[in-house]
């Protein structure tokens, strides 16, 4: 994980589908297994088990969403499959 001054970070991990609220995708990051809600450009990330590298803006306190958890939110700007 690399963090920059404008809170843009790059994370690697696996996409998981959460089964609450009708379903939404989260990133389970490597190596610590920390979960991130995903916002922004997520169209390519709607596949359970996908290993990806994601660059995005981090909101550590999360944001209001259908997840209704306090998990951090990663607003995706770009992503690629691993």
């Amino acid at each position: 994980m690399t963090a920059t001054a404008n809170r843009t970070i790059t994370l690697q991990g696996t996409i998981r589908r959460e089964d609450l609220s009708g379903g939404y995708m989260v990133l389970v990051a490597e190596p610590d297994g920390r979960r991130y809600l995903l916002g922004g450009a997520t169209k390519a990330l709607r596949e359970e088990g996908l290993r990806v590298e994601i660059e995005g803006e981090l909101l550590a306190d999360g944001g209001p969403s259908i997840a209704i958890t306090s998990e951090p939110l990663l607003r995706v700007t770009s992503s690629r499959r691993l």
Partner: peptide, 30 residues
Amino acid sequence: NGMGNSVDIAEAIRWATDHGARVLNLSLGG
């Protein structure tokens, strides 16, 4: 994505109140 921000939600709450909604449902949060 099911994601939003606090300002839109706050505005919607006031909008609903001012436009005659007696019950507001917010199935969202963080």
